[in-house]
Lab assay of single mutants.
Amino acid sequence: HNGKLCKLKGIAPLQLGKCNITGWLLGNPECDSLLPARSWSYIVETPNSENGACYPGDLIDYEELREQLSSVSSLERFEIFPKESSWPNHTFNGVTVSCSHRGKSSFYRNLLWLTKKGDSYPKLTNSYVNNKGKEVLVLWGVHHPSSSDEQQSLYSNGNAYVSVASSNYNRRFTPEIAARPKVRDQHGRMNYYWTLLEPGDTIIFEATGNLIAPWYAFALSRGFESGIITSNASMHECNTKCQTPQGAINSNLPFQNIHPVTIGECPKYVRSTKLRMVTGLRNIPSIQYRGLFGAIAGFIEGGWTGMIDGWYGYHHQNEQGSGYAADQKSTQNAINGITNKVNSVIEKMNTQFTAVGKEFNNLEKRMENLNKKVDDGFLDIWTYNAELLVLLENERTLDFHDLNVKNLYEKVKSQLKNNAKEIGNGCFEFYHKCDNECMESVRNGTYDYPKYSEESKLNREKIDGVKLESMGVYQILAIYSTVASSLVLLVSLGAISFWMCSNGSLQCRICI
């Protein structure tokens, strides 16, 4: 991952900044910058967002509201009850120091605090018919004063009620008058409520006091790749198909172990950190130390980045220098085999997901714990399936590479015959000098055995068991695999060879 928040398929997220979902939807004055928000790819909250409900109280069923919003990608904020005409018999300019803005008392931008007009609070009834052709999110509140005197001074009615009804919602609220500790300079409380109004449905408000009335509502448009994440990451000019709280993932790998919460087309989250597919040879310690064997393909974004291909070729060293050249036929066979294998694994496992966190309130801790156990169970199954699949494929890959290298080895052996000696570690020792032209003939299969047989015969008789390297004779190393990324691999195959001279070296080696 890149540690950044990015656009998702070209669409920017909605960053709530210092506000949370509650503050944004109710219209906390400190969240005025969010009022123009219309569309987004996903919503970003920060872990310690401080601006929620400015007048103390709870947004009821907040967790369910977050779940609903996680599939919303755009909205239209509109005046559901026009301020100047909807409440002619009531005062609608209630403000509070708890919702101060720029040093002055204020109130929510989407709600109206209705109080008595003169000395009376006549029963009010108002309704709205949803003609938007889509779901409408309606929010309101109920004020709970701290004393009967406060109730009387604001609403005149000691036994007030609030009723809200639609086809799918029907509740009646009565204020709970009680002494409470002071929070944000208030002994009173406000509880906030919401409902989704279906197209064509009607919502009716009736009250004799204590109503925090809707002013603006939201017509919602769903987008199934949307979601809500909690993150401290910063926004950058970048684009992605998959976003996590820790950063964007741009990967076609089937798995990731970065974060379980994802938005967009994302690899499946697994616990494993070692889900690797081999593309090189079986481990040979001396070669492995030099980083030549054991190439791997990573299938977990965050564990290993991208696929690494092994390729086969020849390396030689003689009086004229040293050089490398790919054996294109065996390399292409290996590439085709690995590509098919990788595609097979991805096809089997690479279903892209959006995974969002589930919200539970403080009273639902047991449910949250149960949900976590269920999620953990599914996660263990996914991890096991992934590891088992790759384990089985790896064994076949190792066998496949062994065969490829063996074929190259036999190709060289059949040409050199007794003009060189096998020394048991995949290397041959020449009994004759071999210049670049000679080396090329070994690589392309045109090695002239009779041409060098007499010199080889004489050297075999002279050496008589002495280690060949100390006599200045020449080696050919018969097994060799270097490691390159897919891009470098293609470039390498396009070149005939490249040279690395070893000044004054008397050794001649050709490596497979």
Rank of each mutant, 00 (worst) to 15 (best):
Q415C: 15
N350Y: 09
Y384E: 07
H236L: 10
W382M: 09
G472S: 15
D464C: 15
G504Q: 15
V473E: 10
I335W: 07
H236F: 13
E461C: 00
N318E: 07
A248S: 15
Q288A: 11
L370R: 02
G247S: 07
V483P: 00
E347N: 12
Y384Q: 06
N350G: 13
K268W: 02
S505Y: 05
G465H: 13
S414L: 10
H259I: 02
T331C: 08
G280D: 09
N333G: 10
S502H: 10
N444G: 13
S456W: 01
A297Y: 10
N419E: 03
M471T: 12
W304V: 03
S470T: 10
P254G: 03
V345S: 07
K372T: 10
I308A: 06
F293K: 01
N385T: 08
F353E: 03
I300G: 03
N394L: 01
R271M: 03
C266S: 04
T273G: 14
E410Q: 14
C242K: 02
S492R: 11
G298Y: 05
C511S: 04
I284M: 10
E237I: 10
S470R: 15
I476H: 14
G302A: 08
L292S: 04
N385G: 04
E437S: 09
I381G: 03
S441E: 08
E364P: 05
R443F: 02
A355S: 11
G302F: 09
Y324C: 07
Q320G: 07
S251F: 06
G294C: 09
V278K: 06
G323P: 03
E364W: 08
C508V: 12
S344N: 08
L253D: 00
L391E: 10
M500S: 14
K358E: 06
I423F: 09
L292H: 00
N385D: 13
T351N: 10
N232D: 11
G337K: 15
K406G: 11
G302D: 06
A248Y: 12
L490Q: 00
E301S: 08
E461L: 09
W382F: 09
V345G: 04
S441N: 15
G291C: 08
N250V: 13
T331M: 07
